[in-house]
Design a binder for these strands. Structure first.
Lengths: 241, 241
DNA sequence: CGAAGAATTGATTTACATCAATTGCTGTGG
DNA sequence: CCACAGCAATTGATGTAAATCAATTCTTCG
């Protein structure tokens, strides 16, 4: 508990942490330099291209993943062999369950992704000795639950147009939090968007065309989406209140 | 940490805990007798009729609720004034979020309900000093997340018949875990089932009639449902992996 | 260039919603 | 005890959003 830390220089941090955004305002901001150093041997920083598995459903749950750059999709393998997207993870997000014996959902890079993989045993040990860390991990699950319940409401209440607009809004919000007008790079194919929103590829395509026709967005090269007005998009998504 | 407890008699427990099922195999099984005694002044045991609010969305989050008997529905108030059911809680389940400043969802009794209301401050304090309790609470959120993600899959993948069959199956499973043939008391009206499953009252009614016609269930007095074969119902619900 | 895959667009079908009527309970008052 | 609100549930008729089926068009890449 009593980690006497004061005036520790940046240079006392592990090299890779020095310029990391997570150190400034993400998960690692909650860690003392000494703790980062203690964790250091159990962390690997990686970069993967799109379409690679980061964590695989069903295997022994031995690591956490902290997303630094790019988009990761969480997928559930369905009995019929297809996969269903159940969540998206962006920079700053955290993957892994503390109290699950094995991995519940496959995590797969949707774009090029940079991340830190942390040994579960090491971070769990740290959480055992540092309640702040334990709380942070607990709180993260609560955040995921909240998100998942919002998705439930989306699926029961919103029509196709609202779902697509809402997804674009959320991606825009994560990629450029403060802009009213923004250009985003879609991390998902039409099929992936369809899977996530419980719709079909054709419906996604039609709704994107409709949003384009209505002057809310522009699309270039399939994946470059310009959002002209985040507020109007939020209205189209019925995200108000 | 070092709570020296040995050979504590049942009579050392708070009176209300002595015959409580939660003490045997629920949340309170994880607590030492001394801890139960410590919590005792901050707990009230209550019994409410159907249709009462147990926790109210938006108010300051000051208590946890531990369901002992009956069914509680979690509802989200929608902007248009209607309410959407986002979850059901049965005996043994837990309500309340450790790290949320206010209550996220209204919890309302769907049937007569017996429960213990615990001061949040007191249980949080206990969790701070007893990691087992903290873990249990963390784990509970993880369980809720799991359930919520399964609901997402239901809403994206399953049709009306599968949803209704699945709900009956789950209620049957909670009320009588080991039976193949069972009779359940529906804790929800048709409208509530519709809200939970993202369907309409009429569709629920038609699907119940269809399941009856197909010989999977029988219904008396609207709410008494006999399930002839849980296995067949699970098949109808496509719950099989 | 041509093949293969992804996305768009159009035509048709369908599951569920919506609208509408009827039935069946439950409680209240004459 | 019956009459009749008042409400939930059922059942039927019709409408509609999205799925499905079916061509194109656009992209990428060997």
């Amino acid at each position: 508990m009593a980690v006497a830390v004061q005036r520790i220089e940046n240079s006392d941090l592990p090299t890779r942490c020095r310029d990391c955004s997570s150190r400034r305002d993400g998960f690692c901001a909650g860690l003392a330099p000494a703790e980062l150093l203690r964790l250091h041997p159990y962390v690997v920083r990686k970069r993967l291209p799109a379409g690679e598995e980061v964590l695989s459903q069903g295997v022994l749950n031995t690591s956490y993943v902290h997303v630094l750059d790019g988009t990761v999709k969480l997928t559930a393998a369905l009995p019929d062999g297809t996969e269903q997207i159940v969540g998206l993870r962006f920079p700053g997000d955290f993957l892994g369950q503390r109290f699950a014996p094995d991995v519940g959902f496959t995590a797969e890079t949707a774009t090029d992704v940079e991340y830190c993989r942390v040994s579960k045993a090491a971070l769990d040990a740290l959480a055992d000795s540092n309640t702040t860390v334990a709380h942070q991990m607990h709180q993260w699950v609560a955040t995921e639950l909240q998100e998942s319940r919002e998705m439930m409401l989306t699926l029961t209440q919103r029509d196709a147009r609202q779902r697509v607009a809402g997804l674009l809004y959320r991606i825009g919000h994560r990629q450029t939090p403060c802009a009213t007008r923004t250009r985003i790079e879609l991390p998902l194919s039409r099929g992936e968007m369809a899977s996530y929103l419980g719709l079909t590829i054709e419906t996604i395509s039609r709704q994107l065309s409709a949003l384009k026709r209505d002057g809310l967005i522009a699309i270039e090269h399939k994946t470059q989406v310009t959002i002209f007005d985040m507020g109007k998009l939020a209205t189209a998504a019925a995200m108000t209140v």
